[in-house]
């Protein structure tokens, strides 16, 4: 008797529980008692300290330009964006991307001391910066004066870098960090675009390696961008960048580690890193990356 009762209860419980998990029934939020505070559609937020940390992780355009110049590869005006393309950039998102692209170009121009091109570029940058209300942090007057008078080129680099650092800080302080991340994405794609053009023309293994290395930097950048994927423009940018990232899956990077060696000479202490990195990438993969980077970058300038 007891056995039958227990079996009956167990059957009823099983039936009701199975109904709850019935896959044909669409469960909605209304089926659950969820506190209001949890119903916001906000994207998952990463702590600002983590964002700061990640932003620092995306390198400056000056280093890429320095590597290219260090290889004695001459300056090429065709590698940089035409300032007329600025007219295609109308929304805040487009202006932020443009700010990054023209900012990276400015690093390249400054590194080669092409002061005649500086004025045109800083005028474009100032206009784009004004468009997203950060023009006050771009020291246009000092940069114009230095470029016009061909003053110390180091000052040009210093003020350009500091202006961009201040814009970045201000955007994050005013809860527009997504624009800051978009600027960084613009700087990154333009640096890689210039490297891709150089790789086509100069065919230098160090430039190929520099393109391959970007796999490391791209993973940090994608993490940053994904934090703002709720924004439709950022989401579109992520889709474009994911096409590049997919090609980077075929790039393999291996490391061998060694202890750094400190050397003191003339009172200057230098630590020589003893690690070795090896980039394994086929020519086909490199060419695919080059083509995709150029197509994504050109698309961004169309607006």
């Amino acid at each position: 008797m007891y056995r039958n009762v227990i079996l009956l209860i167990a059957t009823v419980l099983l039936a009701t529980s199975c109904r709850f998990f019935d896959s044909n029934r669409n469960l909605s939020r209304e089926d659950f008692d969820i506190p209001e505070g949890l119903l916001d559609e906000k994207p998952l937020e990463v702590a600002s300290e983590v964002i700061d940390d990640m932003i620092q992780n995306v390198s400056s355009p000056v280093e890429m330009a320095a590597i290219i110049k260090g290889l004695k590869i001459p300056f090429n005006r065709d590698y940089i964006a035409n300032t007329k393309d600025m007219n295609n950039l109308n929304t805040s998102f487009q202006k932020a991307v443009g700010l990054g692209i023209y900012g990276a170009d400015l690093g390249y121009i400054n590194m080669y001391e092409r002061t005649s091109l500086v004025i045109n570029h800083i005028t474009t940058i100032k206009s784009l910066a004004d468009g997203i209300q950060v023009g006050q942090f771009f020291d246009f007057n000092s940069l114009s004066r230095i470029a016009t008078n061909r003053e110390n080129i180091d000052s040009l680099l210093l003020i350009s870098q500091q202006s961009f650092n201040r814009i970045d800080s201000y955007l994050r302080e005013t809860n527009r960090a997504h624009l800051s991340v978009v600027i960084i994405a613009g700087v990154w794609i333009e640096g890689l675009y210039i490297a891709s053009r150089v790789a086509e023309d100069a065919k230098h293994p160090r430039i190929d390696e520099t393109i391959g290395e970007q796999k490391v930097i791209m993973s940090s950048l994608m993490l940053l961008l994904n934090n703002y994927k709720g924004d439709p423009n950022v989401s579109k940018l992520i889709s474009d960048f994911e096409e590049i990232q997919a090609l980077y899956k075929d790039v393999r990077i291996t490391y061998e580690y060694g202890d750094p060696i400190p050397v003191e000479k003339d009172g200057v202490l230098t630590f020589k890193q003893n690690d070795t990195q090896t980039i394994i990438m086929s020519d086909e993969t490199l060419n695919n990356i080059i083509k995709k980077v150029q197509s994504v970058r050109n698309k961004l300038l169309i607006g």
Binding site: V216, I217, Y255, T270, K272, Q273, T276, Q277
Partner: peptide
């Protein structure tokens, strides 16, 4: 100030 000769791209 110290100088650092970097041989590996990364964080």
């Amino acid at each position: 100030s110290i100088d650092y000769d970097c041989s590996k791209t990364g964080a």
